[in-house]
Measured scan of single mutants.
Amino acid sequence: DELEKRVKKIARKLNLSLDQVEEWLKRNNNDELVEAVKRLKKK
């Protein structure tokens, strides 16, 4: 979905793993995208 695409884009842009992106999003209080990261990690 759109949020998952955004997460992947962030990960690529910042050259981070999904775990690192998740931490980064949590620090930025971006719950919506944190949920998207969790969905991606399950895939």
Rank of each mutant, 00 (worst) to 15 (best):
Q20N: 04
E4F: 06
W24G: 00
L16R: 02
S17E: 03
A11N: 00
E23H: 08
D19R: 05
S17W: 07
L18H: 01
L25N: 00
R27Q: 13
R39C: 10
L16V: 06
E4R: 05
K26E: 07
A36V: 10
L25H: 00
K41Q: 09
D19N: 08
L18Q: 02
V7L: 08
V34A: 09
V21N: 00
D19Y: 07
K42R: 11
A36T: 05
K5H: 12
E32I: 11
A11W: 10
R12K: 14
K9P: 01
K5P: 01
L33N: 01
L16T: 02
K9A: 15
V37M: 04
R39M: 07
L25C: 14
L3T: 04
K9Q: 15
V37Y: 03
Q20D: 09
R27K: 12
V34H: 06
D19C: 11
E22L: 12
K5F: 12
K13P: 00
V34P: 03
D31T: 14
S17G: 06
S17T: 14
N29T: 07
R27A: 14
K26Y: 06
E22Y: 09
V37G: 01
E35C: 08
N30V: 12
Q20P: 01
E2Y: 13
V37C: 13
L3M: 12
W24Y: 14
L25D: 00
N28Q: 12
L40S: 01
A36F: 04
E35V: 04
R6L: 15
K9H: 14
V21F: 08
R39V: 04
K38Q: 12
W24M: 09
L25V: 03
N29A: 11
E22S: 04
K41H: 04
N15S: 09
L16G: 01
N15F: 06
R6W: 15
N28M: 13
K8P: 00
E23F: 07
L25Y: 06
K26S: 09
E35I: 07
E22G: 05
N30P: 03
A11R: 05
K5S: 12
K41A: 04
V34M: 11
E32W: 10
E35W: 03
D19M: 07
D1W: 10
D19L: 06
R12P: 00
L25Q: 00
R12L: 13
L18S: 02
V21S: 00
L16P: 00
D1M: 11
K43F: 10
L14H: 10
N29Y: 08
V21T: 03
R39F: 03
E23N: 06
R6N: 05
L14T: 02
N15R: 12
E22N: 02
N30W: 15
R27Y: 10
K26T: 10
K41S: 02
D1R: 13
E2A: 12
L14A: 02
L14M: 11
K38P: 00
N15K: 12
K41D: 02
L16F: 10
S17H: 05
L3Q: 11
R12Y: 13
K42F: 06
N29K: 11
D19S: 08
L3H: 07
D1G: 13
E32H: 09
N29Q: 11
R39N: 08
E35F: 02
V34S: 06
A11Q: 13
K42S: 11
D19K: 07
N15M: 08
E32S: 11
E4P: 03
N15A: 08
W24P: 00
A11M: 15
D1A: 11
E23S: 08
K13A: 12
L25K: 01
K38F: 00
A36M: 04
L18W: 10
K8Q: 13
K5T: 10
L14G: 02
I10H: 01
D19W: 06
L18E: 03
N30D: 09
A36E: 02
L33W: 05
K42W: 04
Q20Y: 03
E32Q: 11
W24S: 00
A11C: 15
I10R: 03
N15P: 00
K8W: 15
K43D: 06
D1F: 09
A36Y: 04
K8L: 15
E4H: 03
K43I: 07
K43C: 13
K41F: 06
Q20S: 06
A36W: 04
R39T: 05
D31I: 14
L25S: 03
R6F: 14
V34K: 05
I10V: 04
D19Q: 08
K9E: 15
N30H: 15
K41G: 02
I10N: 00
L3F: 10
R12A: 14
K26N: 08
K8T: 12
A11H: 01
N30C: 15
K9W: 15
D1I: 14
K5A: 14
K26F: 06
A36P: 00
D31V: 13
N28K: 11
V37P: 02
E22H: 07
K8N: 08
S17D: 10
A36D: 02
V34I: 13
L3V: 05
N30R: 15
E32L: 13
L14I: 02
E22V: 07
K41I: 10
L25P: 00
K42Q: 14
N30A: 14
D1T: 10
Q20M: 07
L14K: 04
N29E: 09
E2P: 09
K26I: 11
L33I: 04
L3W: 10
V34Q: 07
L14Q: 03
L25A: 15
K43R: 11
E2I: 11
K38I: 12
E35P: 03
V37H: 02
N15L: 05
V21D: 00
K13N: 09
E35K: 08
A36H: 02
S17M: 05
V7P: 00
V7A: 05
D1Y: 10
V7C: 02
D1L: 13
E4V: 07
K43H: 10
V37Q: 02
D31W: 15
E4M: 09
L18G: 00
A36L: 07
Q20H: 04
R12D: 12
K41V: 04
L25T: 01
E2W: 14
A36S: 03
N29D: 08
V34N: 04
R27M: 13
R39K: 09
R6T: 12
